[in-house]
Design a protein around this nucleic acid. Structure first.
Lengths: 226, 226
DNA sequence: GCAAATATGATAGTGTTACTATTATATTTG
DNA sequence: CAAATATAATAGTAACACTATCATATTTGC
């Protein structure tokens, strides 16, 4: 796995950063440790000053890569969804049967990141946890429409459309393909959150995975072709 | 409707406030206008100082009712879910048929608040919009486990259990009743958000309601009894 | 009706956050 | 090796999230 992805660069909207963090050692360190620090203390308590201290750098240097921590969060989550999109396309590429393809897609998009897949400097296991806890905050804001117009959520939108297409390939008459796709994407993050913090509100745990719930849910709601 | 609810007091965890805002005119004004101001500028931009200016009062006076704006948000959302719970119990009280009961329950919990139902000082239409945009922020924090232990999410938890019970009443063998209930509750807020800001990710709009999607989803995933 | 208690308002102050600007010092590159 | 570029250090500002204190209303109990 590692070697396959090793040379892959996930594309992120250029307006999310001032200077491409992939272009320097400091940039990579910023990205790497912003994930770890956010995971440690939460996005609310995360500041550029603390991050600077963590990586032995200065606040002002971080501002040369990212305008503010909101943009940094958008960068991290875009990267995550871009990575997921890559996994999705890769995992479903050669599957003919629409139902098998959809199931595989849901599996990829709802599973927890277990393997230490670690592309270069980014720890995807931790990033997944950060996305579970923080992704909603990136769009639940008054600036969402402007930012969406600027393409800051383009990767996520595209991913949702891909999943929707897989749904339609199984049942072209299903009346809510987009809603079902967005429910699976967002719902998966939510179920992962619940299993950590509100275990009474979900059956999901280490044995019963969110993927099982969502595959069951989607399969039963679609009319399967003969 | 109004007269029915007029004397109802929604119970909210006492540790969410320093002084009960229902106990004074100022307290009610704080609650009333915190909803309106949060709706106007978003929770991130909301401050006690701005709220004070809005209601012709002082920042320091607001602190005598709420420790901080996070607790105020928890208060508002607890109130909202308490109000929803009341509606749920009321609307499903005399329904015998489990399927009908479940459908009605989902309807109540996923519909948008349209009527100007206005209990005393609280505008529920606006509060619903606030909950759609801000509820996730109340639990996506590092303090969630401690706060959950303190019972700050008790109303929501109870509501999810009620919905789960309705699911089990229809199909006692369904393997994911809690996950389904939490998916409906959280998913409904999400679909309402999407229809305002990411219309391409949902079929829901003014004609096709989130309720229709979720009733269809739940009905098809459960094995209905003969 | 008045004193005491309580609620509210006004002001000031503290430490932190979220930056911006400037200057100095490394490091890289042509 | 000089010039360009990147990073670090420092300082400064306005807003935020409070806390504390004191003054002034308003309510209440006798």
């Amino acid at each position: 796995m590692k070697s396959l992805f090793a040379s892959l660069k996930i594309e992120v909207n250029r307006n999310l950063y001032v200077k491409d963090p992939e272009s320097s050692a400091l940039g990579k360190k910023i990205v790497e440790h912003s994930i770890l620090l956010t995971h440690d203390i939460g996005f609310e308590h995360f500041t550029f000053k603390k991050l600077g201290a963590k990586i032995g750098s200065n606040e002002s240097s971080i501002y040369r890569y990212f305008e503010n921590k909101h943009k940094l969060l958008l960068y991290l989550t875009s990267w995550y969804w871009g990575w997921k999109e890559y996994q999705l396309v890769f995992a479903t590429a050669n599957i003919e049967d629409p139902k098998k393809k959809l199931e595989t897609g849901i599996q990829v998009l709802t599973r927890s990141v277990e393997r230490d897949s670690f592309i270069s400097h980014i720890d995807e296991v931790i990033l997944h946890k950060v996305v579970i806890n923080e992704y909603s905050k990136s769009f639940l804001s008054k600036e969402v429409d402007r930012e969406n117009k600027e393409g800051f959520f383009a990767v996520y939108n595209r991913l949702a459309v891909r999943l929707k297409e897989m749904v339609l390939a199984v049942d072209s008459n299903y009346p809510f393909p987009s809603s079902l796709a967005s429910t699976v994407l967002e719902g998966a993050l939510h179920q992962h959150f619940l299993k950590e913090h509100f275990s009474s509100l979900t059956e999901c745990n280490d044995k019963i995975l969110p993927s099982q719930f969502f595959i069951h849910l989607v399969s039963s709601t679609l009319n399967l072709p003969k």
